[in-house]
Design a protein around this nucleic acid. Structure first.
Lengths: 148, 148
DNA sequence: TTAATTACAGATTATTTTGTCTTTAATTGA
DNA sequence: TCAATTAAAGACAAAATAATCTGTAATTAA
C-alpha cells in the first residue's frame, strides 16, 4: 500500500509544522520534537538535517542547541519540504507507470489524473506554514490524547 | 519517492487494461502480456494470480492456457483492482501521517486533501475498463515506440 | 578548563517492496 | 500415453526504504 508522501516526508512536514507553532527564537532539540510528535528521534534528526541543507530549517549545536525555522513561516511553502525530501517525481510520473506518458501519447487516466495532480501541486504550493499555524497548533496539542 | 499506487498495482492496472483490449475469448499468457508491456513475466504472473482470487481475472492452465477477464469490461471498475492489490488505505489514512486524523480532530490538510482524495476515489470508482478501452488501445499500441 | 549536551556524519540493521527461481499440478496436442 | 506448455505456489534474492547506533565536532554552563 502506498501513500502520496514517503514516511520521511510525512515526518518532515510534521516536524516543520511543529517548529512553526513555537516562538521563533526557540531552539527545539530533536529529542523535544521526537517526544511531542511521538516519532523516532534519530529519524527526526536525519530529516531536519536535510532541511537545514536547503535553508528551510536552521540549527545550532551544543547545549541549548536545536532546530528552528530559518525563514518566516509565511515564506515556507509545503511544496518546498516535499521537494527537498521526496522530490517532485510524483507530479511528473505517469500514474499508471506507463513510459512516455504525455499529452501527445496519454495513458487512459492522463487527463483526469493530471487534473487532480495539478490541484494537489497547487495546494502544496499555495499553503505556507503561516496559514496552517492555527490548525497545526490544535492538532499537535491533541496528539497526546490520540496516542492512548 | 512515492506515487499513489504501488508498482504492483500499476502493473496490475496495465495488465488488466491490456486484457480488456483483446477479444474476450482469447487466453493471454503471462509471457505474452509481459512481452507487450515490457514488464517482468513472473511479476505479471503473481499479480494476475491475485486478481483471479477476487474474480476479476480468470485463468486456464496448460498448453493454450492463460489469463482473461472474468467479467465484462463494463463491469470492472479500476477501484476494484486497486482495492485487491493495494487496499483502500490511501483513501483512509492521514496524508501527513498524524494519528487520529478525523473531521473532529483534523490535520492541517484534512479538508483540502480530503477533497482531492475523494475526487480520486470517485474517478477510480466511476471508470470501468470499457470506458478506457479506446485510449488503452492507443497507448498500448504505441508502447513499442516509447521504449526506444 | 571541564563536563554535559547537542547537531552532524556515516555506518549499520531491520523492514518492506520488488523481482526471480524452482517445483508442482493442470491441460492439451501429438 | 507422453511431451510440451501453462498457471499456481512458495521459497528465495535484490533493492529500496525506514530506523538505529556510534563516534565526532561544536557550544555552553559551571
Amino acid at each position: 500500500m502506498t501513500v502520496i508522501f514517503s514516511k520521511k516526508c510525512e515526518l518532515a512536514l510534521q516536524a516543520v509544522l511543529f517548529l512553526s507553532i513555537k516562538p521563533k527564537d526557540e531552539f527545539l532539540s530533536a529529542r523535544d520534537i521526537s517526544k511531542e510528535l511521538q516519532l523516532p528521534k534519530e529519524f527526526i534528526s536525519k530529516v531536519l538535517q536535510k532541511l537545514t541543507e536547503t535553508g528551510i530549517v536552521g540549527s545550532k549545536k551544543g547545549k541549548t542547541g536545536g532546530f528552528f525555522l530559518a525563514k518566516d513561516p509565511s515564506e515556507i511553502r509545503l511544496i518546498q519540504i516535499v521537494e527537498t525530501i521526496d522530490g517532485l517525481g510524483v507530479f511528473e510520473k505517469c500514474v499508471l507507470g506507463f513510459p512516455g506518458c504525455s499529452p501527445d501519447n496519454p495513458c487512459p487516466l492522463h487527463n483526469k489524473w493530471g487534473h487532480l495532480r495539478d490541484e494537489a501541486f497547487k495546494m502544496l504550493t499555495e499553503f505556507t506554514l503561516a496559514e496552517l499555524k492555527d490548525s497545526a497548533e490544535k492538532k499537535i496539542g491533541n496528539l497526546k490524547f490520540d496516542i492512548l
